[in-house]
């Protein structure tokens, strides 16, 4: 468990090898070509697209209200009326899976988006400015890393409650340090390069240099880390659910559905199988996509075959 909940600090690693021009069509097209070759990553993309659109279309796909209880149909096995069966309050499991997907996916994606935004900003400023700013920000990163994250996660969830929004902030706020270190490392290496020097001589403002010149060159590893981070965030949400600190009822998330299935696994295995399968498929798919992206966006891999 520790591994899911522990922010894994990455070493400063310098990725990009060559400058990316302001017209990035070339490298992106190359990357896409490389990505396409990773068949499982493509499958993963399809799975994610499928799950995401199914969740978005939940209301269309399932006629049931996910929070509508029906105590006369508690723990019904899968049938034509309820393709995935019903749960311990007689609610349609498929409706809950679909609606729960919105929550689980949204929490995963948004938490990572938050983490990447914080991480890139901190890393970019530290790496570009250097000096005392860098020092200060890196001490902040050290500080965040020194916090035993699972313990802090539990404390924060206790204090601020467990609505989807707070979960996004809590999970995202504890997972950005790796990105910050990566981006800083990349920037430290890049900022002395000729094309940056050139931009600086031409009088470009720092923000412009960072956004137009440096970030595009460091974006590969950020995207890879972000993708893989999504699976971590989804698992974290489900782990918090296990401890009773996940999304509050009656809102469904895959994590709290799985936790609730605990008591009735022998009597109603379907209540456990479907949410488990959803988490499994999503995380697996995300991991494959991340793997494919790594192959595609990490220029070191060029010529690896």
């Amino acid at each position: 468990m520790t591994t899911v909940l522990t922010a894994r600090p990455n070493l400063p690693v310098v990725f990009a090898s060559g400058p990316v021009t302001t017209s990035p069509a070339g490298p992106w097209r190359l990357a896409w070509r490389r990505f396409r070759r990773h068949r499982l990553a493509i499958v993963g993309m399809v799975v994610i697209a499928f799950l995401a659109s199914a969740s978005l279309l939940a209301d269309v796909l399932s006629p049931y209200n996910p929070t509508k209880t029906n105590l006369l149909e508690m723990l019904d096995a899968p049938s034509v009326a309820h393709p995935m069966g019903t749960d311990e309050l007689g609610r349609d499991l498929m409706a809950r899976i679909l609606h729960g997907g919105r929550v689980s996916l949204a929490v995963g994606v948004l938490a990572v988006a938050l983490a990447v935004s914080i991480g890139s900003t901190v890393g970019a400023i530290a790496g570009y400015r250097g000096g005392w700013v860098d020092n200060l920000l890196m001490r902040l990163v050290d500080f965040m890393i020194a916090l035993p994250s699972i313990f802090v996660l539990i404390l924060l969830a206790t204090i601020y409650g467990t609505s989807p929004v707070t979960l996004v902030f809590v999970i995202g706020g504890l997972r950005w340090m790796g990105t910050a270190r990566q981006v800083r490392g990349a920037f430290l290496a890049l900022r002395e390069r000729e094309f940056v020097e050139a931009a600086r001589c031409l009088g470009a403002r720092p923000s412009r240099i960072i956004i137009r010149h440096l970030l595009p060159n460091a974006i590969g590893p950020i995207i890879v880390a972000a993708t893989l981070g999504i699976s971590g965030a989804i698992l974290t949400e489900s782990s918090l659910s296990y401890l009773g600190l996940g999304i509050q009822p009656p809102v469904a998330s895959w994590g709290n559905m799985l936790r609730n299935a605990q008591d009735q696994m022998t009597r109603a295995p379907w209540t456990a199988v479907f949410p488990g399968l959803m988490i499994f498929l999503t995380v697996l798919a995300v991991n494959y996509v991340g793997d494919g992206l790594r192959d595609a966006l990490d220029p070191r891999k060029i010529g690896s075959r």
Binding site: K68, T69, E88, L243, G244, L245
Partner: peptide
């Protein structure tokens, strides 16, 4: 109290 399944179930029924 959080983490109490029976209470959570009762809550959801009452809420509805």
């Amino acid at each position: 109290t959080s983490g109490d399944k029976l209470r959570e179930l009762a809550q959801q029924v009452i809420q509805e």
